[in-house]
């Protein structure tokens, strides 16, 4: 039953109602569409109108901002566009892991070059014979592969813990702000050193909170 357009027929049917149909059909073209709540008018029983239109429900808000990738308050000011917690987790962990791997590798390169194997002295002639190239290369590579993955793994675990806790706090509180970041930094640091005693835990918590604060400051500075 279409409510607009057939005013003459309906007047016969509901002539005893408190609001006459003619009045409504006169006002409907003037009322702008979003303010018209059809189900508030007693003549139009929402259950008898088209059921799929959902007229008996409350107002529904459409998401008009299609550029936004996430609906959590405060997101979208990161460096990379993020599709939610999984992107944050992957990029955060990956960046920290690769960064740790590279820094640890450089440190290992330095250590390897400082500790090159000494040359051997020939017992007959007394000449100093330097160690073969393969031995030197092996020393450097051993140092690089010892320190690189160690630092990378530690940084990666910290990033993983931080991002998991941060995304959980975001989902719990419904917004993404610096407080969440600081709290998740502190928690990640505490969990990371949770088996090494209170002092190490406190130290690691402080360091990670500072790192989270630095990250928040960096994000603010570039935005």
């Amino acid at each position: 039953m279409w409510p607009f357009g057939s005013s003459t027929k309906k007047e016969d049917v509901v002539s005893g109602e408190t609001i006459s149909t003619t009045q409504i059909t006169e006002t409907t073209p003037e009322v702008s569409a979003p303010q018209l709540n059809i189900s508030a008018i007693p003549i139009f029983d929402a259950s008898k109108l088209h059921p799929l239109a959902g007229l008996d429900k409350d107002l529904e808000y459409l998401d008009l901002d299609e550029e936004k990738l996430s609906n959590v308050e405060g997101t979208g000011n990161g460096i990379l566009p993020s599709r939610g917690w999984s992107d944050d987790l992957c990029y955060g962990t990956g960046t920290l892991y690769v960064g740790g791997l590279g820094l640890g590798g450089l440190y290992g390169l330095n250590q390897g070059l400082l500790n090159l194997p000494p040359g051997s002295v020939d017992p007959v002639t007394g000449n100093i014979k330097s160690a073969p190239f393969k031995l030197k290369l092996n020393t450097v590579l051993n140092q690089v592969t010892k320190h690189g993955p160690h630092i990378g793994n530690s940084a990666g675990v910290l990033g993983l813990l931080y991002n998991i806790i941060d995304s959980s706090l975001d989902a719990y509180r419904g917004k993404h702000d610096d407080l969440n970041s600081l709290a998740s930094g502190a928690l990640a640091g505490a969990i990371f050193k949770s088996t090494s005693g209170t002092k190490a835990m406190a130290y690691s918590t402080g360091m990670m909170t500072l790192a989270a604060a630095a990250w928040c400051g960096f994000k603010r500075a570039i935005n």
Binding site: L89, C90, G92, G156, L160
Partner: peptide, 20 residues
């Protein structure tokens, strides 16, 4: 999936998280 050079970081992190 993101465009190419940056997706390497994403895959590093995703694979690392999966492994851990």
């Amino acid at each position: 999936r993101d465009p190419c050079p940056i997706v390497i970081l994403n895959d590093f992190g995703g694979a690392y998280a999966m492994g851990v």
